[in-house]
Design a protein around this nucleic acid. Structure first.
Lengths: 131, 131
DNA sequence: CTGAATCCCTCGCGATACTG
DNA sequence: CAGTATCGCGAGGGATTCAG
């Protein structure tokens, strides 16, 4: 692989992304990829939560996945993890300043999703591609 | 599984989502899940593109994946597919009205990603945010 | 040029059990 | 309560070939 190919390996968006070494869109895609990431961030956007509280909000999800997604979000500096040295253990999760900046995106996602559901496809879904 | 459990299978967000049968956030998560979805939408937000043009912008991606992701986006009504009955074949992809509504989200993602990169973790953080 | 069809393999995710 | 440790499956994704 040539050096030039390497430079474009992650981002070939000449029009919009050439100024960055890593494509911002690809970065966001990676950060948010994961079945429960945006849900967790969405929950935490309202208030700090304990591990069990998060898990309770995610039915049909194993403890392992919750931990895994939380760790990933923590690595990417979107959330913090605060351990209280008490018995029984208490761990609190919340958004970092960086993580808070993603909240508006989540809100727009929610709005889009809600509209998507309401806009119903009952109108025969007749999209007109032809100008 | 009880009926009640089933109702909450996809969305347990009592605080924000109980009014919908399907959680809007989960919906968006599903619609946008896929390694190249948001990149493709991002490209198309600027202009309609032919199949090959899209593929060219996604290095190290197989034809199969491009087709697959495009099909998925088309099923979700975010993009349209227009076939020109010519030889050689010509197929054009573009955003639907529904798809255009997601553009602001993409723009915010890009902004977030760019800031994330620039906000540098060089301040005491020796960790690479990517990988 | 666009895309379908196979084969194949990684890895995301789930289920279960164990620990401080 | 809040985790680790293992095992294993299935889907997502890659490489290649064939077709209209």
């Amino acid at each position: 692989m040539t050096e030039d190919m390497k430079r474009h390996e992650e981002c070939y968006m000449k029009e919009h992304c050439l100024k960055y070494d890593v494509c911002p869109m690809t970065l966001v895609q990676k950060i948010l990829s994961g079945k429960w990431k945006i849900l967790i961030l969405w929950y935490l956007s309202y208030k700090k939560l304990r591990f069990t509280e998060i898990k309770k909000k995610l039915p049909n999800v194993t403890q392992k996945m919750v931990t895994q997604q939380l760790r990933s979000l923590e690595e990417d500096k979107l959330i913090y993890r605060k351990v209280f040295p008490v018995v029984p253990p208490k761990v609190e999760y919340g958004l970092t300043e960086l993580g808070k900046r993603i909240v508006p995106i989540l809100e727009m996602m929610h709005k889009f999703g809600a509209e998507y559901l309401e806009d119903s496809f009952d109108t025969s879904t007749s999209e007109d591609p032809l100008e």
